[in-house]
Design a protein around this nucleic acid. Structure first.
Lengths: 242, 242
DNA sequence: ATTTCATCTTTACGATGTAAAGATAGGGAA
DNA sequence: TTCCCTATCTTTACATCGTAAAGATGAAAT
């Protein structure tokens, strides 16, 4: 008995002398100058766990992002995250929310530096792909994971903001007002089209499924160049109108 | 000791009397009329496992598709799949290959029934989305899973065929010849564009991320209608050419 | 008939998610 | 002040999973 969970949870950081019954040599309060490094007992564990999760994600990829790994990275017991996120779904959802906020910020700031109308139109899509390339793990959490709980306010809000930004951008490009509650079929199609194109391209690119195409293009064509061309080219060839 | 793997592998089917040392009452050969139902020892376990995997996938979704669940479904021991697929990656990869073949077949047969040029142009994309909607689990295995081994010939071949079909369709639509080894930037962009659009739309649709748009469209607009509109509409609004 | 070997089963182990019970301290009530 | 309450964190436990390794089994070759 008592064989499971054999001491393999490596590298626990020392926090308290463990079962300090005899020799109460513990500093009685707190070192006071504990630079919020390891927030002893209370403190900002929630945020620390989210940061740890981001670190684990970047280091070990999506498959390495487990509850226990995050707890390990944060230096707490493996069950500590449960209290803050309830569930793996909970942690992933909150992390996805963080991702969406980063994402929205990147998209928003991308438009500022644009001068020409063309640059303005391309800024957002390019920022979209750029974010995904810079944070493939995060993008995976946001768009590849099945296990997300969109009923969580933080995630719902952040994702909603992301969608609103997209819809707005399309509306501006078409020089129309996108009223919040209703869409014409053409408006909806324009939004779906833009989103599908950008999202689809990003996924295919991250999954390496465009290598086949890229390898056959003129020497040294970058994914960005392909993406730009793809966005700008009108629908050539035969797709006869009604 | 010997505590792990306690008898919880429920519902094993009875195959042999288990350790028949005393009382060799076993039918000595085989009932002869064993309708290939459970191919006793030898037989087509590989195929049976793939079929079982497909069943499990449809019943329990992607997260329910485990090596042990598949073995259970096929009525063999949990380690049996290892010998045929080596790995979970192996099983998923072979299953993905099956999916790609189904997918290719669906795409190919979709063009046959088309009469008008417009119908012909829309047949493939619609078949693409239709397949994904009919087999969301399979589509997930093919396009959502990170754990696929494209060095496996069967998968590589099937996926390659899928890509070739797409490229060909685009080529025909542009009334050009797509030479196998080289592409112009515009050709590549056309292919990437079509694939991104279709794949992106499918993922967003399966993930329920288009509900937001669909809910704001005119009463009773179906995803298919939105998809069609999205495919046919030219690039409206301002994307100024050079 | 005996041997060989691919196939399948047992057994075992480390890892994971999750539940439940025990420890610990921060903060208000007496 | 002192004492208890409660949120927070740790231990312990367990079912499940992937995977490795060794044992059984029977079909085919010798």
């Amino acid at each position: 008995m008592g064989k499971s969970e054999t001491r393999t949870e490596t590298a626990r950081v020392a926090r308290t002398p463990k079962k300090a019954s005899a020799t109460p040599s513990r500093p009685a309060r707190r070192p006071a100058a504990a630079k919020a490094e390891t927030p002893y007992h209370h403190g900002a564990l929630r945020e620390a766990l989210l940061e740890a999760a981001e670190r684990v994600l970047e280091r070990d990829g999506l498959s390495g992002l487990t509850l226990r790994a995050v707890a390990r990275e944060a230096g707490v017991s493996h069950a500590a995250p449960t209290h803050h996120f309830g569930d793996l779904t909970g942690l992933l959802s909150e992390l996805a929310a963080v991702g969406f906020r980063q994402f929205n910020a990147a998209m928003a700031s991308s438009c500022d530096a644009a001068t020409t109308p063309l640059a303005r139109a391309l800024a957002r899509p390019k920022a979209y792909v750029a974010y995904a390339q810079a944070h493939p793990g995060m993008y995976g959490i946001m768009f590849r994971t099945e296990r997300l709980d969109y009923s969580r306010p933080s995630l719902n809000e952040a994702a909603e903001a992301s969608f609103a930004g997209l819809a707005n951008a399309i509306g501006m490009m078409r020089q129309e007002q996108i009223s919040g509650d209703a869409l014409t079929l053409n408006q909806g199609a324009a939004i779906a089209r833009a989103w599908s194109m950008v999202h689809g391209f990003t996924m295919l690119l991250l999954d390496g499924r465009l290598e086949d195409i890229l390898g056959r293009l003129p020497e040294g064509t970058t994914p960005e160049r392909l993406f730009e061309t793809m966005l700008m080219a009108p629908v050539t060839g035969k797709l006869p109108g009604p």
